[in-house]
Amino acid sequence: NITNLCPFDEVFNATRFASVYAWNRKRISNCVADYSVLYNFAPFFAFKCYGVSPTKLNDLCFTNVYADSFVIRGNEVSQIAPGQTGNIADYNYKLPDDFTGCVIAWNSNKLDSKVGGNYNYLYRLFRKSNLKPFERDISTEIYQAGNKPCNGVAGFNCYFPLRSYGFRPTYGVGHQPYRVVVLSFELLHAPATVCGPKKST
């Protein structure tokens, strides 16, 4: 009989979020998941679920829940969905086509923008091939755009693969920082350890 609540607040209220190319993952297990707390949290810009209804989450049990978190621009949030393409979905964070879970995003301009620009948040701009679902690539190898080998030196046709967002408070909404948490639900042939409040007695 599990009684402790799942530590969703640790994920959602973290002081610093990860850059999207180096997205953070927390495994959540052996706890009671009260999703209504999240669902009623006012400032969400997006709360979209795939393969599961957000209002039914509290009735369900899962083997594991993974909480992935990172920061992207407002106009990139739409790429955090199954079957998407674009710089983020291709080179930074890719969801599987059969994704079961929820994508939760909110504007973090007050936290993550600075006058003069916040350059701490990076994304991958160049990559030889697209990421596989949930693949994480933190390499900083110089990207070779031409035929000539770069030998690890940036220059003509040789690019550092990461780019900084440089968030400023005055940017338009599409270019403002958004914090994103992706909850993915794993249902294995194993005992369920993460259940909603109704199922955990």
Rank of each mutant, 00 (worst) to 15 (best):
P54A: 14
T140W: 07
F160K: 15
L57N: 03
L38M: 09
A42F: 08
T85H: 14
S164E: 10
I72F: 01
R124N: 04
T140L: 09
L95T: 01
K48R: 14
T85F: 05
V77T: 06
K110Y: 08
A18P: 15
S29Y: 07
G155E: 11
C150V: 06
D97W: 07
S139D: 10
C158M: 04
R27D: 09
I80R: 02
I138A: 12
G146N: 08
C102K: 00
L111K: 11
N1A: 08
C195L: 10
K110C: 07
T3K: 10
F99G: 00
V77H: 02
A14M: 05
F70S: 03
A22T: 07
T55H: 14
V153M: 13
G83D: 05
V103C: 04
A67W: 05
G152I: 06
S184I: 08
N120D: 14
F167K: 03
F47P: 04
Q84V: 09
G152H: 10
V37K: 14
K94L: 00
P82Y: 00
Y39H: 14
L131P: 02
D34M: 06
T85R: 14
A42Y: 08
K94I: 00
A89R: 02
G51L: 01
D98K: 10
F17K: 02
F99V: 00
I72D: 02
A22Y: 07
A22P: 02
A33C: 08
T85C: 06
F99C: 00
T3L: 06
L38H: 01
N157Q: 12
N24E: 15
V20Q: 03
I2F: 12
Y123S: 13
C102E: 00
P161Y: 01
R16V: 13
V180F: 01
S200H: 13
K132D: 09
H175W: 12
S113P: 03
G83Q: 09
V180I: 08
L122R: 15
I72H: 01
I2E: 13
H175L: 11
N58A: 11
K132N: 10
K198T: 14
C195N: 12
C158A: 06
C31G: 05
T85S: 13
L125W: 13
N120E: 14
S19G: 04
T100A: 06
Y165P: 05
P43L: 05
K148P: 09
G101L: 01
F47T: 07
L60A: 08
K148N: 12
P149C: 09
V115F: 10
L38I: 15
F62S: 07
F44P: 11
I142E: 07
T15P: 13
V71F: 00
Y93W: 01
R16M: 09
S184L: 07
K199H: 12
Y159H: 15
F134N: 09
P96I: 00
L122P: 01
L111A: 13
N151V: 10
Y21G: 04
N40S: 12
Y93Q: 01
E186R: 07
F134R: 07
C195P: 11
F44N: 14
N75H: 11
C61D: 09
Q84F: 03
L122A: 15
I142H: 09
S108N: 04
N75L: 07
G86A: 04
L187C: 13
N1Q: 09
T3Y: 07
C61E: 13
V103P: 00
N157C: 08
N130P: 15
P177A: 08
R124C: 03
C31M: 05
F126M: 14
N40W: 06
S29G: 09
V103S: 00
K48M: 05
N107I: 04
F156L: 13
R27K: 15
Y50N: 01
D9K: 11
L5D: 10
K94T: 06
G196H: 10
V11W: 06
N40V: 05
Y143C: 07
F41Q: 11
A42I: 08
F70M: 03
T201V: 14
C195W: 08
K198D: 13
S184M: 07
Y50H: 03
N109G: 07
N24R: 15
A145W: 10
P177D: 04
T85E: 08
N92S: 03
R168A: 13
L111E: 15
K94S: 06
A22W: 04
S164C: 07
G101K: 00
I72N: 01
P197D: 14
L95F: 01
G116S: 11
V173H: 11
N120K: 12
Q79C: 02
A81Y: 01
A22S: 11
F99P: 00
F8S: 02
N1T: 09
A22M: 10
F70V: 01
P7T: 10
S36E: 10
Y121K: 06
S78C: 07
I138Q: 11
Y93R: 02
V153C: 11
C195A: 11
R124T: 02
P191C: 07
F45M: 14
T170F: 08
S53L: 09
G146H: 08
A105D: 00
F70T: 01
N130T: 13
R73K: 12
G196Y: 09
D137A: 03
N75I: 08
P149H: 12
N13A: 02
Q176D: 06
L187F: 10
G83M: 09
A105P: 00
V153H: 14
W106L: 05
P197L: 15
Q84W: 03
N40P: 08
R136S: 06
F44A: 10
P82A: 01
T170H: 14
S19K: 01
R179N: 04
G86S: 03
N64A: 15
E141I: 07
T63V: 10
V71G: 01
R168I: 09
L187D: 13
A46F: 09
L38D: 03
I138F: 07
E76S: 01
V194K: 11
H189L: 09
